Amino acid sequence: MDSLVVLVLCLSCLLLLSLWRQSSGRGKLPPGPTPLPVIGNILQIGIKDISKSLTNLSKVYGPVFTLYFGLKPIVVLHGYEAVKEALIDLGEEFSGRGIFPLAERANRGFGIVFSNGKKWKEIRRFSLMTLRNFGMGKRSIEDRVQEEARCLVEELRKTKASPCDPTFILGCAPCNVICSIIFHKRFDYKDQQFLNLMEKLNENIKILSSPWIQICNNFSPIIDYFPGTHNKLLKNVAFMKSYILEKVKEHQESMDMNNPQDFIDCFLMKMEKEKHNQPSEFTIESLENTAVDLFGAGTETTSTTLRYALLLLLKHPEVTAKVQEEIERVIGRNRSPCMQDRSHMPYTDAVVHEVQRYIDLLPTSLPHAVTCDIKFRNYLIPKGTTILISLTSVLHDNKEFPNPEMFDPHHFLDEGGNFKKSKYFMPFSAGKRICVGEALAGMELFLFLTSILQNFNLKSLVDPKNLDTTPVVNGFASVPPFYQLCFIPV
């Protein structure tokens, strides 16, 4: 009986604490739906499609509103004006990374994606500088992407125009580009180590996009005490870190300090320079996690976009025909596509942009946080508050993009057929937390897609009208449904 009384008292205290925290903070924060004790607004949000729920709530509470995930307040920004004001106009104040408990377990605050403060700034600055020195957006990395595009075309030829699921092959190409940047090595598509790495990356994007992960991140005790797919994700990350550590040891034994070959060499050189400046942010643990982040951000996002792009091109054969006509006119058949071609191919450029806009790969991006107490639109948001960005509300804005739910390359073309930029184009987020590999991803999408369409016609196994382009999961990332196609050599 005594234990029951204690339990009831504990629960009562928890409920009172929950109510007090919510009521004391709500006077400062933007308005929002009334949260339930302990669980907050979790029942009012469709976990399978958070973005749709945010759109519905914005119609009631406006472009800036507050939700509670458990006891934790989260300020939501919906629509271009609110997102721009926060991420661009007040970029420094909104540059923090929001709480992501599962990532905390995986990387302990290291790396480039989930770190904060001085650690994040130094690692991000170093990573950007190193990638630029190796030619991100310049010639040397373009050579690597072109080489991988040629290998991709050869792998597709091996399908002999038979029906195939493109998931694996389209994942190999961007993964190999990242391998060449980090390890100075590309792998054969049949290499077992490479296959294991690909498998872990593919599993992780599916797990991260599941409703279960949303629950884990908002009720963090689940991570330590409950079984579930989150444990598989943590094991996959541990596998990748151990693999990278092996490569780091190989580099330490063979590195030429006067001739760095890749990202690992550059990081080890930085560690050597910083060894007298303790404590340094440049450690082996930081290198492991930064490399894992580059793999995660640079492989599955690009391969998922490529997979979605081919599905949309199957669905819209008239678009595919126009792209192939432009390829034939500008590039021809006797040389590989290059980035200089893009400025002469406005329709193809528009298609690449429209694919990214339409699929809305990361509907709410990753959570941000404010780095200080900030007054925002007459609300006071306390330091450390998590900020949720609705990228969907920007990419699918119906004023900027008429009929935003329709796939239409003319969203990025003017009346004369010239490519038209849009400030609403934010597939990689915006501001200080914009994806480090934005330029690389854009290069890969253009070169891989043009190389495929230069060499193959795409054949659907069903009537294009019957192809479903609805994402199968739409949590962290929008993942396309399973499909097969035939690559018919031109």
Rank of each mutant, 00 (worst) to 15 (best):
G70Y: 05
L16N: 00
L447N: 03
L440I: 05
S53H: 13
W212T: 03
G70H: 03
R132T: 15
F65V: 02
V145W: 01
N231Q: 15
P337L: 04
F476G: 11
Q22S: 11
S18G: 14
R125D: 13
G91M: 05
G32Y: 00
L453Q: 01
I45S: 05
K119A: 10
C10V: 13
F187R: 03
I74V: 15
P33D: 00
E154G: 07
R105S: 07
K249Q: 12
P221D: 11
G91I: 03
Q22H: 12
K375G: 06
R186T: 04
L458S: 03
N56V: 13
S478A: 15
L77E: 01
D262C: 14
T304R: 13
A309P: 00
K52N: 15
T385M: 03
D191L: 00
P402K: 06
N236R: 02
L234F: 09
I181W: 06
P163E: 06
D414P: 02
E288K: 10
K375R: 11
I50R: 09
L4S: 05
F194H: 04
A173F: 02
E250F: 06
I50G: 05
E93C: 09
T371Y: 04
P404A: 06
S3D: 11
L458Q: 00
L311Y: 03
E148L: 00
A82V: 13
F476V: 13
G27M: 13
L294E: 01
Q192S: 14
Y189M: 04
K421S: 11
E281T: 09
R97T: 09
G98R: 08
K160P: 03
N176T: 00
S51A: 13
N204L: 07
K138Y: 08
E203C: 06
E81T: 07
Y308C: 06
K247D: 02
D89T: 11
T301M: 14
I434V: 12
E104L: 13
S422W: 04
Q22D: 13
P489F: 01
P211C: 08
V76C: 11
F267A: 04
L90W: 15
I327V: 08
I488F: 05
H344P: 02
F295A: 05
G171Q: 13
N259W: 07
I244A: 04
C151A: 15
Y80H: 05
L306P: 00
S286M: 12
N378L: 02
E155S: 07
T469P: 09
E92M: 09
K160G: 12
G79D: 04
Y243M: 14
A86K: 00
K121M: 11
V5F: 15
K206W: 10
V330M: 08
P101L: 05
K247Y: 09
C486K: 08
R132L: 12
N231T: 13
K399R: 10
G117P: 06
F425E: 07
F219K: 02
F65C: 06
V6I: 13
E250D: 08
L90R: 15
L17R: 07
I452G: 02
K273E: 05
P382L: 04
E438I: 04
L43N: 10
L131A: 03
M129Y: 09
L287V: 03
L36E: 02
F476L: 13
I387C: 11
S162E: 13
K160T: 06
C216V: 09
D188C: 11
I215F: 14
L17G: 10
E203Q: 14
M345P: 01
I178R: 07
D468A: 12
E415Q: 13
N107K: 07
S95A: 14
I222V: 13
T392N: 14
N176A: 01
K423F: 13
V177W: 00
H78E: 05
P174W: 01
T386Q: 10
M136Q: 14
V145P: 00
V370T: 14
F168S: 15
G332E: 04
T305K: 02
G117V: 05
N176G: 02
F110I: 15
K59M: 09
P227V: 11
C338L: 08
P409N: 00
N455L: 03
F263T: 04
I47N: 13
E274Q: 14
S280G: 12
I389S: 03
I182D: 00
S162W: 06
N259A: 12
G79L: 00
L467T: 05
L461T: 13
P409V: 08
P35A: 08
M198P: 01
K121C: 06
H344V: 07
E354R: 00
I488E: 15
L90Y: 14
N259V: 07
E328K: 11
D49A: 06
V76D: 00
I327A: 03
W212R: 02
Y61A: 01
L71P: 15
G137D: 15
E326D: 05
L7R: 00
L15C: 11
L453A: 03
K206V: 09
G228I: 05
E354S: 02
A350R: 01
K275T: 13
K28Q: 11
I244S: 02
L380R: 14
L170H: 02
R150N: 08
S451V: 07
E155M: 05
L268T: 05
I264T: 09
I207S: 06
Q22K: 13
Q146M: 11
I434D: 15
Q146A: 11
L14P: 03
I99K: 15
F219V: 09
V436R: 02
V83Q: 03
S254L: 08
H184R: 14
M198S: 04
T371D: 06
F134H: 15
L11F: 13
S209H: 12
G98F: 10
L9C: 07
G332V: 04
D165Q: 01
T371N: 15
L294N: 00
K185V: 04
I39T: 03
Q484G: 04
R357D: 01
S23D: 12
E203M: 08
N334H: 06
K235G: 07
Y424Q: 12
L11N: 03
I215R: 03
M129V: 13
A149I: 02
N204V: 10
S140N: 14
V319H: 12
L388T: 03
V6P: 08
S3T: 15
L362S: 04
